[in-house]
Simulated assay, not measured.
Amino acid sequence: SIRWDNGLINKTRFDFIVPSLVAIILSAIMTFVWFEIGTKNSNIFINDLTYYLICFLQTMPGFYIAALAAISTINSTTMDQPMAGDPPKEKYVEYNPYKVFWIEMNRRRFLARLFSYLTFISIVLFCFLLIIRFSYSLEIKVSSLYVVYMVYFFSCVVVIFSLVQLIMMTFLSLYYLGERVHKN
């Protein structure tokens, strides 16, 4: 429900296009490596990479929730002012009578939405990785090798897309909290 267009860098590119391109390219490389090498350790969902990623992801929601609580309770008039430049706009709906408005976001609302989404995606990615890792531990036999590689590719795309989004948005939140809030 947020719209932001700032020329070359816009919300769609930042949230979806860049993570999608990175996810597809890296997933293709990892699927090719697993297909060519063919050892058990070349599958990222079986080796220690996902174990360490799961350990990392289980701690992140706590930090995001703490940041969300700090943003929500901080007593600062600058947090309630509209963002500088061309601020993102948020969809606002009135139901009686039905009207749709796009209102400019303030810093508090922007950061609250950002940390809420980061919390959500880290929890979902954590659960998805647990399910995938458990599924691989079952050692289910599939007759078609192409099905195995397609499921692996799809799983890699979902994990890498979510991880790239998580990293990019975390860096955005760090930049905004560390730099932009104090400049305006």
Rank of each mutant, 00 (worst) to 15 (best):
S1R: 13
I2N: 10
R3Q: 12
R3D: 14
R3T: 10
N6H: 13
G7W: 01
G7Q: 08
I9N: 14
F16P: 02
V18S: 03
I24F: 09
I24W: 03
L26S: 05
L26P: 00
S27W: 01
A28I: 15
A28C: 11
A28L: 15
I29P: 00
M30P: 00
M30N: 14
W34C: 12
I37L: 14
G38D: 03
K40Y: 07
K40S: 13
N41K: 12
S42M: 04
N43T: 04
I44L: 15
I46H: 04
L49V: 12
T50V: 14
Y51T: 14
Y51W: 13
Y51M: 08
I54A: 04
I54G: 01
C55T: 08
F56C: 11
F56N: 05
M60V: 06
G62W: 06
G62E: 02
F63G: 12
Y64E: 03
Y64G: 01
A67C: 10
L68Y: 06
I71R: 03
I71H: 03
S76R: 11
T77G: 04
M79L: 15
Q81M: 07
M83C: 01
A84D: 13
G85W: 02
D86F: 06
D86I: 08
P88E: 08
Y92E: 12
V93I: 12
V100F: 04
V100C: 06
V100L: 07
I103L: 14
E104C: 03
M105R: 06
N106P: 02
R108Y: 04
A112N: 10
R113C: 08
L114N: 08
F115R: 03
S116T: 13
S122W: 01
I123Q: 08
V124E: 14
V124R: 07
V124P: 03
C127I: 15
C127L: 15
L129Y: 04
I131G: 10
I131P: 04
F134Q: 11
F134K: 11
Y136I: 02
S137D: 13
L138H: 05
L138S: 07
K141N: 14
S143M: 04
S144H: 14
S144C: 08
L145W: 07
V147I: 15
V148A: 05
V148L: 07
F153A: 07
F153M: 01
F153D: 00
F154C: 10
S155I: 00
V157N: 00
V159G: 00
F161Y: 08
Q165N: 12
M168F: 13
M168P: 00
L174I: 12
Y175L: 10
Y176Q: 10
Y176H: 11
L177F: 13
L177V: 05
E179L: 09
E179S: 09
N184F: 14
N184L: 06
N184A: 08
